[in-house]
Computed example of a mutant assay.
Amino acid sequence: MARIGTLVVGRHVFDMTDGWEGVPPAGEQLVVVSHRPRPAGWHPDAPFHFVDGVARALDKARELTGEDRDIGVAAGDVGGQAFALGLVDEVAMDVVPVVFGSGKRYFGSVGTRHLLDDPHVVIRGDRVLHLRYRVRKQP
């Protein structure tokens, strides 16, 4: 399993986390999908790149990431848009025993059906189940 070189997230996640104070939560680079630029004065040396659109963000992530590492894409609207563009090869989920009464869809509004193979990685942790699924490519 390759490690993440670049992570792609949406502006909502970036804002909610205050940009992880300029330190990517995974990988060495972070690409933020946003129609707004990097906040003025915000961690000028942070390895964060602000790009308009999911396809452009993934192009930037490919440019930043070496071939021996993966590109991670956060769930939510950005993940759903990457699914819709056919750019997701694998889904990693961490399941914890918490049930919420409301919230956002895991992949936002995905307009079409996407099939996942049976999990090829299943790791049971302390109150967490780590799962990885390959995405079936449809003709």
Rank of each mutant, 00 (worst) to 15 (best):
W20A: 09
P39D: 08
L30S: 02
G53L: 13
L58T: 05
P37C: 11
R36G: 05
E28L: 09
F50E: 05
P39Q: 10
P44M: 11
H35T: 15
R56S: 13
D59K: 14
G22E: 11
P24E: 02
V23H: 14
G53Q: 12
H35G: 13
V32N: 03
P44D: 13
G22Q: 10
F50H: 13
L30H: 01
G41M: 08
V51P: 09
A40E: 15
A46P: 12
F48A: 12
G41N: 10
H49P: 06
E21C: 06
E28G: 12
A40T: 07
S34T: 04
E21H: 13
P25Q: 06
A55N: 08
L30Q: 04
R36A: 13
Q29N: 14
F48V: 14
D59F: 03
E28Q: 12
P47M: 05
P39A: 11
G19P: 05
G22R: 07
P39G: 08
R36E: 13
R36Y: 07
V31T: 03
W42N: 09
G22N: 11
W20P: 02
D45M: 11
P24H: 03
A46Q: 07
F48N: 09
P24T: 05
P37A: 12
G19H: 04
D45V: 10
A26H: 11
G53F: 12
V54D: 00
D45Q: 15
V33S: 01
P24Q: 04
L58G: 05
H35Y: 00
A40Y: 07
D45C: 10
V33D: 02
K60P: 02
G41K: 12
G19V: 06
A57L: 04
A46S: 14
W42D: 09
V32P: 04
W20S: 07
H35F: 02
G53M: 09
V31Y: 00
G27R: 01
P44C: 11
R38T: 13
L30P: 01
E21V: 00
R56G: 08
W20R: 05
R56V: 00
W42M: 12
P47I: 03
W42L: 13
A26W: 14
V32I: 15
R36L: 10
D59E: 15
V31S: 00
